[in-house]
Design a protein around this nucleic acid. Structure first.
Length: 440
DNA sequence: TCTGGGGTCCTAGGACCC
DNA sequence: TCTGGGGTCCTAGGACCC
C-alpha cells in the first residue's frame, strides 16, 4: 500500500474550541462557591484525579494521580472533591455543541470538551472578534469558559490552543510564519498532539526537543522512524493540513462498557451480576445508536497494581444473527464469562466489548440458515425476536421517562456487590427532575 | 486500604490462497 | 533430497487521544 499525503486544498484554517478544565467548570456552573478554589473531579470508583482546577494544578496534583497520593492535601488546602457526574457533563457538552452550530454548520465534535470548526468556507474576517464572540456566548449561555486556537492545520490549532492557555488568553491565532515558528520553538515535542509516552523519549534521544526541531525534519525521515502517523504529524506542524475535517460523524466501530468494582470480588455470581449490568448498558447504547453487533467479548481481571499476580481472562461469544437485544447480550455475556473466569482470584474489574458494529438498517444476512441456527442456539424464533424488540423498547421508554434502572434484569442482581464508590457526586441538575437546583 | 473509562488507527505476523 | 513468490485477510497488540 502506498501512502499519499492528503494535503487539503489550501488555504485551510481550523479553530479548536477547548473547554477549560471541563468537568471542574461543569461543577462550578451550579456551585459558584467553587470559584477560585482548588477543585478535583475523580474517575469512576473515586480512584484518581481526572480534572483539576488551576488552583489544584498549582498544588501539584497531577492528571491521573490516585486519590490516596494527594489526600493529605485536601484538608489543609480546602480542596473540593467530586465523584464524576458524566450525565451532567454530557448534557452541558451537548448544549455547547448546539450553540457552536449556530455560528457555522462546519463543527466537528472531537471529544466531550473539544470541537474543531472549519473556517476555510467562511469569508476572511476578523478572527479575534469571532473567537471572542464564541467565547462570550458560551460563557453567557452555558457558563463554561473555553479557549480557542486558530491555525492552518488541526495539529497547529491544538498548539495554538495550548499557547493561549499558557498565556491566559481566550484565543490565539497562528497564521503568519513567524508566529508559527515562535509557537513551535515554545512547544516541547512531548506536548505535540500525537506524541505520547513512547515517542517522546525516542525523539529526545535523537536530539529533537522542541516542535521546531521536529518540524525541520524531512517527512520521509519521519515516516521511517514514526510510521505514517509520524509523517502526517510532521507535515501538519509544517503547515500542510493532512488530517481531514469530518463534520459528519462516522459510524461508531466499537462500544465497550467497563467498570471497576467497589470491592474486590472472588465469586463467579457476583461478577456475573456486574457483567449482566454491563450487557444491559451495552444493549441500551446499541439501540440508542441504532447499531447491531455480531459478537461480544467479556473480560474480568485482577488489579495490575499490588503484589498478587495479574490475571486477565477473556471470553468471546458470537451470535447467529446481529443483535442489540439485551436478553441475548446477557446470555452471551454470561457464557463468555464462564471462559474468562478462573476461581481463586480477587477480581478488580470486568467489562464487555462489542466490535465490528453494523448500522441497524444495513443488516447483511450472515448465512442462508440464519433462522434455523437462531432457533437451535437460542430457542428464539423470529416472532420471539420481534417480541424481544418490543420488550427492549418498552423497558427503554420506561427507564427514560421514570429513571435509569426503574426496570432491570434480575440477573444484574437485586443487591449487587460490585457497585462502584460514588460518594461525592453532585446533582444531575439538568437531566433529573428530582435533582433540579432549588433556590429557596 | 486506595490506581477510570471509552474510543481510534496502525502494524506486524500468521493463515490461507493461487 | 530438492521446496517460490505474491497477494489478501484477520488478529493481537501497541500507540495515541480525551
Amino acid at each position: 500500500m502506498s501512502f499519499t499525503v492528503c494535503a487539503l486544498s489550501s488555504p485551510a484554517l481550523f479553530a479548536l474550541i477547548d473547554c477549560n478544565n471541563f468537568f471542574v467548570s461543569c461543577e462550578r456552573v451550579f456551585n459558584p462557591s467553587l470559584t477560585n478554589k482548588p477543585v478535583i473531579v475523580l474517575s469512576g470508583n473515586d480512584g484518581c484525579a481526572i480534572a483539576r482546577s488551576n488552583q489544584a494544578k498549582d498544588l501539584g496534583v497531577a492528571m491521573g494521580a490516585p486519590l490516596h497520593t494527594f489526600s493529605h492535601l485536601i484538608n489543609p488546602h480546602d480542596i473540593r472533591i467530586f465523584s464524576s457526574n458524566f450525565e451532567l457533563y454530557g448534557d452541558l457538552s451537548n448544549r455547547m455543541i448546539n450553540i457552536l452550530q449556530t455560528f457555522t454548520p462546519d463543527v466537528e465534535v472531537y471529544s466531550i470538551d473539544e470541537a474543531f470548526i472549519d473556517l476555510s468556507p467562511l469569508p476572511c474576517f476578523d478572527y479575534a472578534a469571532f473567537a471572542q464572540k464564541i467565547h462570550n456566548t458560551l460563557l453567557k449561555h452555558i457558563g463554561i469558559p473555553v479557549t480557542i486556537g486558530i491555525a492552518p492545520t488541526k495539529t497547529l490549532a491544538k498548539m495554538a490552543n495550548r499557547v493561549a492557555k499558557k498565556i491566559g488568553s481566550p484565543f490565539t491565532l497562528l497564521q503568519s510564519a513567524p508566529d508559527i515558528e515562535n509557537a513551535l520553538r515554545q512547544t516541547a515535542v512531548s506536548d505535540i498532539w500525537g506524541i505520547g509516552r513512547a515517542l517522546a523519549p525516542k525523539l529526545k534521544k535523537i536530539g529533537l526537543y522542541t516542535a521546531y526541531d521536529l518540524a525541520r525534519k524531512d517527512p520521509r525521515w519521519a515516516r521511517s522512524v514514526m510510521g505514517v502517523t509520524g509523517e502526517r504529524l510532521v507535515r501538519e506542524i509544517q503547515g500542510i493540513a493532512c488530517i481531514p475535517f469530518n463534520a459528519v460523524e462516522d459510524d461508531q466501530k466499537s462500544i465497550q462498557v467497563t467498570r471497576s468494582f467497589g470491592v474486590r470480588l472472588t465469586e463467579f455470581n457476583d461478577i456475573a451480576e456486574a457483567i449482566s449490568g454491563h450487557a444491559t448498558r451495552l444493549g441500551e447504547s446499541l439501540r440508542k445508536k441504532k447499531l447491531v453487533t455480531p459478537t461480544i467479548s467479556v473480560f474480568c481481571r485482577t488489579s495490575p497494581f499490588g503484589n498478587a499476580p495479574y490475571y486477565k481472562g477473556i471470553g468471546v461469544t458470537g451470535f447467529d444473527t446481529l443483535t442489540q437485544d439485551t436478553q441475548t447480550l446477557i446470555r452471551g455475556a454470561i457464557k463468555a464469562l464462564q471462559h474468562a473466569f478462573r476461581p481463586g482470584h480477587a477480581y478488580q474489574s470486568a467489562g464487555i466489548y462489542a466490535m465490528d458494529l453494523v448500522k441497524e438498517g444495513r443488516v447483511a444476512q450472515k448465512s442462508l440458515f440464519d433462522i434455523d441456527l437462531h432457533q437451535k442456539s437460542s430457542g428464539c424464533t423470529p416472532s420471539n425476536a420481534k417480541r424481544g424488540a418490543a420488550v427492549n423498547k418498552a423497558i427503554d421508554e420506561i427507564n427514560q421517562r421514570i429513571g435509569k434502572d426503574t426496570l432491570f434484569w434480575a440477573s444484574s442482581g437485586i443487591y449487587p456487590r460490585h457497585v462502584a464508590k460514588q460518594n461525592r457526586r453532585s446533582s444531575r441538575y439538568t437531566t433529573r427532575w428530582d435533582e433540579i437546583k432549588l433556590i429557596i
